[in-house]
Computed example of a mutant assay.
Amino acid sequence: MSDAEWALIEPLLPVPACQTLKGGAPERWPRREIVDGIRYLVDNGIKWRAMPADYPPWRTIYGFARRWAAAGVLGIIRDHLRRHIRLAAGKTPQTASVIVDSQSIKASETVSKATRGWDGGKRSMDGSGTSSVTTAALSCWSWSPPLTPKTPWSHGSYCSGLALMHPEIAIVWADSAYAKNGLIPWAKKYLDITVKTVRRPPDTKGFIVLPRRWAVERSWSWIMRARRHCRDHERLPEMSEALITWACITLMSRRLTRQKARPAERRDIAHGYVLPQAA
C-alpha cells in the first residue's frame, strides 16, 4: 500500500483502545502492516495460516479483520472512498440508481453446510454478492416478494434492506430474472422503488454488451481479479462479505491515488538528441 493510500485509510480506522477513556493495552503491530496483510491475502488468495513472515501473525490480522468488519469500519471506508470517486468524476456524492446482480462461486470444504446451497441455474455452490453473501439456494429467480414488508426473505427483503440503508435510491436496474414473482409492483408499492429490467435482444446468441448491465459485469470482473474470490473458503458468510469489501476498497484507493503518467522527458541537444519540429 502506497503512502497516499494509507493517508486515505488511516483516519477512517477506529481509535486504538489505549487512546480511549476505557483504556487498553497498546497495539503491538502497526496498523498499516495489518491492512497490508489483509490486502495481501485478498489479492493473492492464500490461506490465513500461510501469511508470510514479513507480516504480523495471521491470528492478529484475522482478529483485526473480524473486529473491523463487525464494527462497521469497512462500510465507513467503502462509502467514504466511493463518495470521493464520484466527486472526482463530477457526480453527486450519492446516487439515486443502482444496478443489482448475483454471482455464484464454488465453496471449499471449510464452508459449513449451513451456509452452502445449490444453484441449479448456475451449476455452482455458495452464491455471493457485492453487498451480501448468502447460500446459493437463494437464487435470484427462485425468490419471491413477501406478502408484507416484514417478511424476512426473498428479493423483497433485499430491496427492503436497500431502501432502509439508502433511502435516496429510487431506481434499481436488474436482469430479467427480477421481473418474476411480482417483485416490480411490490417494490413500487411498499418501497417506492422502481425496478427496471434489461432484457437481451431477441434472437441473439453468445455474449453481447447490454445497456446498464455491462457496468455490473465489469465490476464483477474487477472483484474476481482478487484470487481470494475465485473460491469461497470462509466459514462465516460475514467474513466472505468483508473480504469482498476489502477488494473494492483496494480498487478505489488505487484509483484515487493513481498518478498520471509523466510525459516523456524532453531531450535536448546537450544529450545528443534534437527535438523534431512540428509540421
Rank of each mutant, 00 (worst) to 15 (best):
A242W: 00
L138V: 13
D79Q: 05
M165L: 05
A50W: 03
G45T: 01
K47V: 04
S131D: 10
V274E: 12
R262F: 06
A96G: 13
P11G: 05
K113E: 05
P56C: 00
A278E: 15
P52K: 03
S253G: 06
V198K: 08
R59L: 02
I269T: 00
K106M: 05
D43A: 11
I9S: 11
E265F: 06
D101H: 10
Y178S: 13
W68T: 03
S139D: 07
H80A: 07
Q103N: 15
A65C: 12
V172R: 11
H233M: 07
E27K: 08
K122Q: 01
T151V: 12
R227V: 04
H84C: 07
P167G: 03
K150E: 09
A107H: 05
L275F: 14
K22I: 03
A226T: 08
F207V: 13
A247M: 01
W68K: 00
G120V: 00
W222H: 11
M1Y: 11
G206Y: 13
W214Q: 15
L210I: 09
P14D: 08
V98I: 15
A65D: 09
T148A: 01
I269V: 06
I223C: 14
D232L: 11
A177M: 14
D36R: 08
R227L: 05
L12C: 08
C230K: 14
M125H: 00
W141F: 02
R123E: 02
S160P: 00
T257P: 00
L251Y: 00
G37F: 00
D36Q: 10
G117F: 00
W29C: 08
A65Q: 10
R228K: 10
W222R: 13
R258M: 01
M165W: 05
A7M: 14
R116E: 10
A242S: 06
D3F: 04
A163Q: 14
